[in-house]
């Protein structure tokens, strides 16, 4: 078993993974990076460096730098001296990578989780001229009678909806 460089005690890759899996998303703090599907791999190199792979959600996600800093900081604080956080671009992230636990935590936090991501074929992308048909149950009262207010919202990944039953507005993580 490859062990990581720490302050004297022997730590395994499993220990490092446990630490990395506790780091939360800066914009959806109810989710860990593991719940979000952004944390792709944790391993220990031959020289004892903890290597963490993360993947961006959107090309312009401004939180990548913070995620990287949080991961390095958490692992340092847990005693792992050498940490290397690497970007993995392929395959591209989709909302299907959000775990079941992540979907539950989103709903508990008042944000409707995404449905299934659209299926993408290899050829030309078909044009969609009608409104994007999304459905989302209200995370506050559970009603299915909700309507999209704005396709874009405070962060790239969310749309704004309103519940017709309880009248409350809420955010919805868009399928991508």
């Amino acid at each position: 078993m490859v062990t990581a460089v720490t302050g004297g005690t022997t730590r395994t890759v499993d220990d490092a993974r446990v630490v990395a899996e506790t780091v939360t998303d800066p914009e959806l703090p109810m989710l860990t990076l593991a719940d979000l599907g952004v944390l792709r791999d944790v391993r220990v190199d031959d020289d004892g460096t903890v290597v963490v792979d993360i993947t961006p959600t959107y090309s312009g996600c401004p939180a990548m730098g913070v995620m990287r800093a949080d991961l390095v900081h958490a692992l340092h604080r847990a005693g792992f001296a050498d940490v290397d956080v690497r970007t993995v671009l392929s395959p591209a992230w989709t909302t299907d990578w959000i775990s079941e636990a992540g979907r539950r935590k989103l709903a508990e936090g008042g944000i409707a989780p995404p449905g299934r991501a659209p299926v993408r074929a290899a050829g030309p992308v078909p044009l969609q001229l009608g409104p994007t048909r999304r459905t989302a149950d209200c995370p506050l009262c559970g009603s299915a009678d909700t309507v999209e207010q704005s396709e874009f919202s405070a962060t790239a990944c969310k749309a704004l909806r309103r519940c017709r039953s309880c009248g409350e507005p809420f955010e919805h993580v868009k399928e991508i």
């Binding site: 959107y58 090309s59 392929s90 993408r120 992308v125």
Partner: peptide, 15 residues
């Protein structure tokens, strides 16, 4: 890889 990621985004830009 950059293109595969961009396709997701450009699809809703165009729509």
């Amino acid at each position: 890889a950059i293109a595969a990621k961009g396709v997701h985004e450009l699809t809703y830009h165009r729509d």
